[in-house]
Nucleic acid binder design. Structure first.
Length: 203
DNA sequence: CTACCGATTGACT
DNA sequence: GTCAATCGGTAGA
């Protein structure tokens, strides 16, 4: 239990990894304490075929991690904040899954301190909020998620998390490729970001 | 070197 | 619902 997912989990087609990440636990161990949450919202970014992906125009110092092996963390900054991604597929195939929201399960007080916010629903609802709640910044870029320390992802013990009902929508905030349905959320979860009509009521 | 701008958020009407 | 602050990465001069 709470063993890190193996590299083989990440070394698969990005959309498949994205869907399978829903319901998994994102774990963070720090000197200040432990934080954990259930992943409820992700987006897939498809590299060379995907104008919305950072890697679309080739490798740069910023996106280099996306080109590396699967199972590592890609952290970038935007609008003076941070967002975290999980790198998928083989080395040289720059695909990744953006972690957009988590349902807090453990270490809620620590998240509240880091976010300077009481409301549990908003602690990790949105990619930059999630990073703040987990204290992840650009220094974590390249982190290996299969190590089982610091930051990793594990299967949940709770059977209810095993095969969640998935709702699909266009990605949020992207200025190109509006049409692709590459955002995945756990249907009906109050912890997902975006407008209500994209929260995933129906299937 | 400067100019532009985004995979966002939070404050405000 | 609307809107502007924010700042590092990237492209172009």
């Amino acid at each position: 239990m709470l063993e890190p997912l193996p590299r083989s989990f990440y070394d698969r087609p990005v959309v498949q990894v994205a869907r399978d990440l829903l319901g998994k636990l994102l774990l963070r161990e720090a000197p200040e304490g432990m934080v954990a949450g259930r992943i409820v919202e992700v987006e897939a970014y498809q590299g060379f075929d995907d104008p919305a992906a950072h890697s679309f125009r080739g490798r740069t110092p910023r996106n280099a991690t996306m080109f590396g092996p699967a199972g590592h963390l890609y952290v970038y900054s935007i609008h003076a904040r941070f967002c975290m991604n999980v790198v998928t597929e083989a080395e040289g195939t720059p695909t990744a899954v953006l972690l957009r929201a988590v349902e807090p399960r453990e270490g809620i007080e620590l998240m509240q301190t880091r976010r300077d916010l009481e409301k549990v629903r908003d602690l990790a609802r949105g990619p930059a909020r999630l990073c703040e709640a987990y204290a992840i910044d650009r220094a974590w870029d390249g982190w290996d998620l299969t190590g089982g320390e610091g930051l990793w992802i594990a299967q949940s013990d709770d059977a209810e998390d095993a095969s969640p009902k998935i709702f699909t929508s266009p990605r949020i905030g992207v200025t190109s490729a509006h049409e692709s349905l590459l955002r995945f959320v756990i249907a009906g979860s109050p912890f997902v970001s975006g407008p209500r009509r994209l929260a995933g009521e129906a299937e």
